[in-house]
Simulated scan of single mutants.
Amino acid sequence: MPLGTLDRTPPPFFKQGPSALTKLVFFSALALFLMVADARFTLMRPLRAGLATALYPVQWMVIEPLRLLQGGSAYVEGLSSLQAKADTAQRQLAAQSLRAGQVEQLTLENTRLRQLLELRAHITTPAQTAEVLYDAADPYTRKLIIDKGVTHGVVAGSPVLDGQGVLGQVTRTYPMVSEVTLLIDRDQAIPVLNTRTGARSVAYGDPTSYGGQLELRFMAGNSDVQVGDVLTTSGVDGVYPVGLLVAKIAKIERRADSAFARIYCTPVAQISGARHVMVLQPVASQVADVPPPAPVVAPKKGAKK
C-alpha cells in the first residue's frame, strides 16, 4: 500500500477526547458559574440540605458513641469530685465545730478573767468603708487609691482591710482621696504573731516574687515555723489592732550557709482584686493619754510627825 494512502488517525481505543486544556477551561468556567449562581440565587441550598439530611444518620452513629463515652467519663469524674468535696466539707465542718466550741470557751474565760482583774477595754477601733478607685501609676510600687480622704476623717497610718485580712496602710492623704500602700510593697513592714507558737516577728513586702508575697526576715534557721502557719497582727507597733489576719507561711528555705531561714508568706487579703475596703483608725490615736502623776505635797514645817 502506498505511504500516502495510510490512515494516520489513532484507533478508537486510543482516542482521548477533548484536550486537557479544554477540560480545564470548561470545568473552571462551570465551577465559577455554579459559585456565582449559588451566591446569587442559592441554587445549591436544596442539594446541600438533602445531602445533610441523608448523611445525618451516619453522623449520629459515629458521634453518639463518643458522646456517650465522654458523658460517662464526665459523670464518673463529677461523682468522684463531688464525693471528695463532700468529705472535705464534712471534715471542715467538724473542725469548725471544734473551733467554735474552743472560741466560746476562750471567750468565757477571757470575760471571767477581765471581771476578776477588773479590767476594761481601753481601745475601740472606729472604722469606715471605702471603695478602690484605681491602682497607682507608679510601676515600682504597689499602691491603691481609695475614695476617702482627710474630709472623711482618714489619717496617714490608718490600717486598711478587705473581707479576708490586712490589705495595707494609708501612707498619704488628700482632701477627697487617700493613697494605700499594700503589704507586698518593698517599703512596707508589719509586726506579726504566729498563732501556733506565739512567736513575734516582722513581715516585709516582697513584690519581686510571683504575684507578690511577704517575707519573714531575720528568723533563725532552727526557728519553729511550719508551712501553713497563720500570721496575725501583734499590735506592738501602735498601728494595727491585735489579731487581724495577715498571711500564711507558704515556703521555708533553710540553708546551711546562712544562720537565717528564708520564709515566704502569702497574704490572706485579695491584694490584686480588692474592690471595697475598710479603713481603721490607728491604734495609737485611740489610746487614752496617760494622766499626769499627782503632785507630791511636801509636809509643812513644824508639823507633827
Results as ranks from 00 to 15, higher is better:
D257V: 05
K301N: 10
L216Q: 03
P207I: 10
I271Y: 04
R172Q: 08
M219N: 07
V279S: 04
K301L: 15
C265R: 05
G198K: 12
F260G: 00
K248Y: 14
L280D: 07
S223L: 08
Y264W: 10
Y204T: 08
V296T: 13
V230M: 11
G273S: 15
A284P: 00
V239A: 04
L214D: 00
P175V: 14
R262N: 11
V180Y: 03
I252D: 07
A274G: 04
E215N: 13
P295Y: 05
V279A: 01
S285H: 13
K300R: 10
D185G: 04
L193Y: 03
L245S: 08
S234V: 03
T233W: 05
Q213S: 12
R217M: 05
Q226S: 13
R200G: 08
V236M: 08
G168D: 04
S234P: 03
E215W: 04
I190P: 00
V277F: 01
C265V: 09
S285N: 13
S209H: 07
A250I: 03
Q226M: 09
G221L: 06
R172E: 14
F218P: 10
T195C: 04
A247F: 03
P292E: 15
A298P: 09
R196G: 02
I263P: 00
A256Y: 08
A250D: 04
F218M: 15
K300M: 12
V297Y: 13
A203Y: 03
P267H: 01
R217S: 10
A259T: 14
L167D: 02
I184V: 15
R275N: 14
V192W: 05
L216I: 06
G212W: 02
P241D: 11
R186T: 15
G228R: 02
P207N: 09
Q270T: 12
V192R: 10
R275Q: 14
G212I: 07
P293H: 11
L167G: 00
Y174F: 15
D187P: 01
D229M: 05
V279T: 12
R196D: 12
I271Q: 10
G273Y: 05
V287S: 09
S258L: 09
R196Q: 10
T208R: 11
V277M: 06
N194D: 09
A294K: 15
A274T: 11
N222S: 14
L183K: 07
D257N: 14
R200T: 13
R262A: 08
V242Y: 14
A294S: 09
P293D: 12
L167I: 04
E253Y: 10
E253V: 13
V227N: 01
G235V: 01
Y240R: 08
V290D: 07
D224Q: 09
T266W: 04
A274D: 06
S209A: 12
K248L: 04
S178A: 08
N194V: 07
M278N: 07
S234T: 12
P175C: 04
V283T: 15
R262Y: 14
K251Y: 15
Q169L: 11
P295I: 13
T181P: 11
V287I: 14
L231F: 08
Q169V: 06
C265S: 11
V279D: 01
A203G: 07
D289V: 11
N222R: 13
R254V: 08
Q188E: 09
A298V: 15
A294G: 04
